[in-house]
Design a protein around this nucleic acid. Structure first.
Lengths: 232, 232
DNA sequence: CAGTGGTCTAGACCACGGT
DNA sequence: CCGTGGTCTAGACCACTGT
């Protein structure tokens, strides 16, 4: 039971306690919203708010008519933010630098075309941009990007502002895919990132769309020592 | 304006349209909830639901008394799920295998003690577990774990069931830290994961707590080729 | 068909935090 | 102080879905 006024947070906490202490064991149905509202002496909307929140967090599974059940395997979700690389560096208290290495139209590899869902013959060439982000004048991250030229036309110049930053600020994107992996530095990467050939590098592939319009496919490869951190 | 009945989703969509089309430009204040409720002919609670959702997604910043503003840099958030390794492998349609490599009490390195907030003298030794997860009989992921012995005592055996699985199923954890990075395979890792020495490996450090009780610190190192994927 | 969660309303009070 | 978002209520109707 809960003392004093019932807030949705306190109700959430109490429900979570019952889940953790197995008063409501995994897989079991829990009481209906109406019953809980009566038990706690609050409105059903308050119960709904608390249980909806727990469902979003992965603790509960809710279905109309089917009721609410405790998730069998409590799937923990971690979230992290996709920020502008400049902000990432400045947030570490380091000085930001930027250098454009390449910018040209070129036919994109099949993998990239597939990721951007351009497998029909349209848009034979994409804009390719390669740039280096520096932290305190040392290589931090290499940005290797394929852009839809209809989104970022030739009039747009990435000499001073990175494509990363321009896109985040100016293009509304609705979704995309992310992939994290490790890769070994080849000769070109080693030269750009000022590390040994063969060094283990952390990399991210990102594909973004605006509605169904392909925007960009980018690979960010970080200098050795980089860690992507977050909390649960 | 919105035709027909006003749902919080339709209101959210309309607000998002105004943000993307710069009717509400970045940094600008948008109308108060009460005004929007009047404009759309709905209750303030409905407006609140829509705007709260956009704020959680990073499009808006809301403050009591300060009103609601369009975020200057729309921060996109990506989420991914922390699942049981066995389920991860089986989800790929591969056969799961497991082999326990080591299980003993030992003094933990300072880094581990720091991550688990055990910097006072308590708990001089922790339980160390090292195990290999296999996919179709090939090394998939090496689990290297320090456990609070008060949580997983000596009576508990990880011969058949991995610590990873036991913990997820039996210990309620409330939070923790995550770190992703790339590392080069040293001799021991290369032997366990059947890869070349020096290969670039994807790794995750995870620290978990239950309330303020330290539970475990684990490093998962994946065999070459692994990608952690998610959507935005 | 009927039960359960999903949502909307109209109104109220409160907490926070600029002025 | 006082405006703004945060939340709660009591009631209503609706949408989905299992039986």
């Amino acid at each position: 039971m809960i003392a004093g006024s019932v807030t949705w947070q306190s109700l959430r906490a109490e429900a979570l306690r019952r889940i953790r202490s197995r008063i409501w064991p995994p897989g079991a149905q829990i009481p209906h919203e109406a019953d809980l509202a009566e038990e706690f002496g609050c409105a059903r909307a308050t119960v709904n708010r608390a249980l909806r929140d727990l469902a979003e967090a992965g603790y509960l599974e809710r279905r109309r008519k089917g009721g609410t059940r405790v998730a069998l395997t409590p799937v923990r979700k971690a979230t992290f933010e996709i920020s502008i690389i400049r902000q990432d560096i400045e947030g570490r208290g380091q000085g930001y630098g930027y250098r454009l290495l390449a910018d040209r139209l070129a036919p994109a590899p099949t993998e990239v075309r597939k990721a951007l869902r351009l497998m029909d013959g349209s848009m034979s060439e994409l804009r390719f941009v390669r740039a280096l982000h520096l932290a305190d004048d040392r290589p931090f991250c290499l940005e290797s990007r394929w852009l839809n030229p209809a989104v970022a036309g030739p009039g747009l110049c990435f000499d001073a502002q990175s494509a990363n930053e321009w896109l985040v600020r100016n293009i509304a994107f609705s979704g995309g895919d992310l992939g994290f992996y490790a890769r070994a530095a080849d000769r070109a990467l080693a030269a750009d990132l000022a590390c040994d050939e063969g060094a283990a590098l952390f990399a991210v592939d990102r594909t973004t769309f605006s509605d169904t319009t392909p925007i960009t496919a980018v690979t960010l490869t970080y200098a050795p020592g980089y860690r992507l951190v977050t909390e649960m």
